[in-house]
């Protein structure tokens, strides 16, 4: 059994909670991993060292880690990480880094792994319309989709080594542009409420936003809504040509359930559908379906949630 290496997921320098799931996935591959933290604070290193199932921790410190730059991160992380099977998060930057690192080592990269059974890895293909089961024939870099492996708990504390390792950055961030709205991103949210063309007018998304506020949810949209209305940006699109999401709760409002939308949200733990058409395909995939217009259902949903959640 070759060594396993986990690249910790960080967000703005802080440790992302998915890291505990990556350690769990590395354990499923058969060993206590070396966890590499790209450009970390001491507190993040300490937090990783406290996780159960961690072999050792290498905090990779360098100037290049101040903003995400694929080329320099891959070079620096490659130097710090031992050979073996490398596990990253299947986040936007995690997948990008995984690809660079695998190419650097001339090994395969396997993205979006959702299950590990012995030596068999499972990944969705065609946006989850089918699953692909593969066996590695050597070292590889794999990325793990969030919310698919149970996070490890607290352990006895692993040894932390600090390595100073930077590389020349190839891209220069000139300006950070604040997001047009401060809403939660659908890719990050644990609850999502999405609207489709059945919402009739983009101004009606305000009704979804109020419910999202009550739930701490993100607001998403179907491709039909994004393509029809300029006011609904592509960043909100859930589906095969938008974002693939895996929340605990997905509420689809006025969305018929086209194959390409289902492909992006079918793995949600619970799906609620509100649609006036009882024959809409979305109902076949919903845990709870409500046949109703959104005009009738949303005010009741909002008042019920506010009564419940305060």
């Amino acid at each position: 059994m070759s060594e396993t290496v986990v690249i910790a997921e960080t967000k703005q320098g802080m440790l992302h909670s998915v890291t505990a799931e990556l350690v769990s996935a590395a354990n499923a591959l058969g060993s206590a991993p070396t966890v590499i933290i790209p450009g970390t604070s001491d507190s993040a290193a300490a937090a990783v060292a406290e996780l159960a199932g961690v072999g050792r921790v290498i905090a990779c410190v360098g100037d290049c880690f101040s903003t995400y730059d694929a080329a320099s991160w891959a070079k620096a992380v490659d130097t710090c990480a031992p050979a073996g099977i490398v596990v990253c998060a299947a986040s936007q930057n995690g997948k990008d880094l995984a690809s660079r690192l695998a190419a650097r080592r001339s090994i395969s990269v396997v993205q979006d792994v959702v299950a590990i059974d012995g030596s068999t890895l499972t990944q969705p293909i065609f946006s989850g319309k089918a699953m692909q089961n593969i066996v590695l024939s050597g070292d590889a870099v794999i990325s793990i989709r969030a919310n698919t492996f149970a996070a490890v708990g607290e352990g006895d504390g692993a040894e932390v080594t600090v390595m100073n390792q930077s590389a020349d950055i190839a891209t220069a961030v000139r300006e950070m542009i604040a997001k047009a709205n401060e809403r939660l991103d659908v890719a990050e949210a644990d609850i999502i409420i999405s609207g489709g063309r059945g919402m009739q007018d983009p101004v009606n998304f305000v009704d979804l936003e109020r419910i999202a506020d009550a739930l701490g949810a993100a607001v998403g949209a179907s491709r039909a809504a994004v393509d029809t209305w300029d006011e609904i940006p592509h960043s909100m699109q859930v589906g095969q040509t938008g974002k693939t999401v895996n929340p605990s709760l997905y509420i689809a409002v006025g969305i018929s359930g086209a194959i390409q939308h289902l492909a992006g949200m079918r793995t949600s733990k619970y799906i609620v559908a509100i649609n006036k058409d009882a024959e809409a395909p979305i109902f076949k995939h919903a845990d709870y379906g409500i046949v109703s217009t959104w005009e009738e259902a949303l005010p009741i949903l909002e008042s019920e949630l506010k009564a419940l959640l305060g």
């Binding site: 090994i107 395969s108 396997v110 068999t120 969705p124 293909i125 989850g128 319309k129 089918a130 699953m131 692909q132 089961n133 593969i134 066996v135 590695l136 024939s137 050597g138 070292d139 590889a140 079918r266 799906i271 009882a278 109902f283 076949k284 995939h285 919903a286 845990d287 709870y288 379906g289 409500i290 046949v291 109703s292 217009t293 009738e296 259902a297 009741i300």
Partner: peptide, 22 residues
């Protein structure tokens, strides 16, 4: 570097409940 063992259909969820009316 990999061997594709098989393709399988996605896991199916148990059927849900549908309610008529808001």
């Amino acid at each position: 570097g990999i061997n594709i063992v098989s393709h399988t259909p996605p896991p199916q969820k148990a059927p849900g409940q549908t309610f008529d009316g808001a």
